[in-house]
Design a protein around this nucleic acid. Structure first.
Lengths: 144, 144
DNA sequence: GTCCATGCAAAAGTTTTGCAGGGTA
DNA sequence: TACCCTGCAAAACTTTTGCATGGAC
């Protein structure tokens, strides 16, 4: 996302473009393949802006989530993680290995069928989903 | 689950059958249609056993999860919730309404296909999954 | 009797909030 | 200038841990 678009989207919400918000977005974009916790995000942003406070990071990820820029994820930990929103093409899932705890991302759109079925049967209009599969990754399967 | 089976499964893990564990299991069974947080579970058990401590409830749900009696769920809150494990037939998902925040449960086994696909393509052996759909429930759709 | 389990309280960890000062528009 | 945003510190909240007592087997 470029600076102009970002600023515009902030403006829509009556928010300002600050150094910190831009810095946090940059780190998120540079780590778009990761699932950062708020602490990890804080550490990365702090490298560039050492004066930033943890509370600002918490407030910013809340804002970004409301704006639909990032999605909140829940794995089996005491904290939340975030990833850049996959927007319309939200057809990806997470695989968590129960042995090494690594998180893999996979592309898959078979869920559309299930969503159609749910909409049909339960009159529930699906707008988003979170799917996590647990099991053993290839490497760990070999080491059993 | 009857007392004898429960005791036996505890024994397998080298654990004892205590009043508190039995009480917590009873509350979970009586509320098998709900997704209780640890605090809610604590409050319900406390009605029957006022002397019980919160730490015991936390320790017990951890134990029950290890035993496969209950599953840990993550919704969009600061705490975990639990439900009785659906064992083999784990083909149910959660629908969360973004407006009223109610949680609905649905039965669906189309996921088997996706799991097969993942196993095939990513060499990832799926043993369990968590699926949550977000959207608008029937009632809230009508009130838009 | 042995050892596990419990309750309490303290600690640890994550997230939120209050407030005065500073920055953006 | 007006108002939003930030950093800091304190508070709130969930979960874990230590320890002495009590209970199951």
């Amino acid at each position: 996302m470029n600076a102009a678009t970002f600023k515009e989207r902030l403006k829509e919400k009556g928010c300002k473009l600050t150094t910190q918000r831009r810095g946090i977005l940059d780190v998120l974009i540079e780590n778009c393949d990761k699932h950062l916790s708020t602490e990890e995000l804080y550490a990365l942003v702090k490298e560039r802006y050492p004066e930033i406070g943890l509370a600002t990071v918490y407030r910013t990820v809340q804002l970004f989530e409301e704006m639909g820029i990032i999605d909140k994820l829940y794995f089996d930990e005491g904290c939340s993680r975030y990833e850049l929103s996959h927007q319309e093409e939200h057809h990806h899932h997470h695989l968590i290995c129960s042995k090494c705890n690594k998180v893999f991302e996979v592309e898959n759109d078979l869920l559309a069928e299930i969503e159609a079925h749910i909409q049909d049967k339960y009159r529930f209009k699906v707008t988003n989903h979170k799917v996590t599969f647990y099991g053993h990754c290839e490497a760990c399967s070999k080491n059993i």
